[in-house]
Structures are given as structure tokens and as C-alpha cells.
Amino acid sequence: MSMRSDRSLVPQLSTGLWYGYLVLVIAFLMTPLLSLIIASFDSGQTFSLPFEFTLKWYSNALTSTSVQSAVDSTIRISIPVTVLSTIIGTAGAIAYTRYSFPGQEYFKIVALLPIFFPLILLGLGMSMWANVTGLGYGIVPAIIGETVWISPIVMFVVSISALGVDPNIEEAARDLGADTLTIYKDVLLPLIVNGIVSGGIFAFVLSWNNYYIVSYLKGSEITITTWIHGRMTQGFTPVVPALASMIFYVSLLLLLVAVLMELRSSR
């Protein structure tokens, strides 16, 4: 949008007010996360005043065997979900953005629809379906269930990145004698690789933080989010804020990497 050339005090002041408002919105969005971090360093059995600094809940979280087994189950779900949904979502994105075929818009609508579903609906529908079909509950059903929700998100992210690539580029490569495989390997995939990597990181972080779907499909397995939820609602321990904070730190780090990848690709 055009900047006015009159650099007087008034527009600068109003820009400052707009920034101030955004800072307030960000402060609102950060409030619970910062509260969690503050509470994770408090020494009380339940968070209470006065505040006393400690690191013991972090060390308890890292040494607890029930936390370790929850981390273990979460990883056994998250890694396959990341791999599967990155492949499936990327394939869908390439089909939608680099080809034209009958029913393309319907494909987009159906493929992206799960993103708009409240997760509780997906979770309980999947839970009944797993019972009816004999799929059962546990690691594998949880992987399939999360992949249904996360693949469309990867497709969305990769599509945005693939739509930025010149539509004539495959044609040019084909004219120069490249076959389909070569076009993919040497032309298309290198151009959208940053989108794919950030889609993959989003997939991992979303799977790692998933609660609703996994809680309906996990069976007797306990993942980090269901462990935390169980301890929040009954049998609270001060390890909960510490563990939740650690998950937040890891998610934040991965997210920053993903954003930087996206940024590099858009340059």
C-alpha cells in the first residue's frame, strides 16, 4: 500500500498505535504459555504464592518412567504419521497444483475438508469405525487417524509452495527431453523441497501435540498429551507444567526452523 510522503508526526504516531495493538494481541496469545512456564519453575506442590524458583520438576519429568513411556509411544506414533502424511499430502498437492484433471475442484474440497472438522467429531467417529471394522485401538489406528487430519494440512502447505513455481517449467523440461521421473527428481521436487520440509515439520509438531484423535484411538497406550490430560483432571503433579513447557520449547524450535525454510523458499 502506498506510503504518504508527508512524514509528519501524526502518521508515525498512528503506526505506533497499530503496533501497540498487535503487541497486545500477541501478549494475549502468549499469556497461557508464559503462565505455564512461570508455573513450571515454581517449587510448590500446586502452583501457589509466594513464587519460589526451582528446576526440580524438570528433572523429575526427565527421569519419570511414566513420562518416558509416554514419550516413547508418542514418538512411535509421530514419526510414521510425519512420513506418511508428508508423502500423501505432497502427492495430493502436486496432483492438484501441477496437473489439470476432471473433478479437480471437488478433489480439493474433499481432500481439505478434514481440516475444518472439529477434532472431537473426527475422534469419536473414528473410534466407532475402528470398533465396527475390527481395526481396533492402539498405535496403528492412532497413526491412521492422525494421518487423515494431518495429510490435508501438508497438502495445503505444499500447494501454496508449488503454486509459486512457474506452470510452464515441466513443459520446458519435457521439451528438452526429460521423462516424468527426471522432471520430478531434477526439476519439480528441488523447487518445492522447502515447502515439503516445512509441511513435514508441521506434521510432526501437530502429531506430537495431537490430543483429541489420539485420545479416542490410543486404546491402552498413553501418549504425552493424554498423560498430561489425565494428570490435569485427576492426580495432579507439578511435573505437568514442566513437561508441558518442554513440549512447548521443542515445538517452538521446530516451528522456527519450518518458518525459516518457508522464508528461504519464497525468496
Binding site: V25, I26, L29, M30, T31, P32, L33, L34, S35, L36, I38, A39, F47, F202, V205, L206, N209, N210, Y211, Y212, T225, I228, H229, M232, V240, P241, A244, I247, F248, S251, L252, L255, L256, V259
Partner: peptide
């Protein structure tokens, strides 16, 4: 980035943060 961070944190963790607040 600050605006999208919350989207990538588990719903129950964020809501629990509000409880602590």
C-alpha cells in the same frame, strides 16, 4: 510467527495455561 505459535501447541496445554493464569 508470534501469531501462529499457539496453533502448534496442544489445545489442552494452552487451555491448562489459562487455568494456571
Amino acid at each position: 510467527i508470534a501469531l501462529i505459535i499457539p496453533l502448534f501447541t496442544s489445545v489442552n496445554i494452552r487451555v491448562y495455561g489459562w487455568v494456571l493464569f
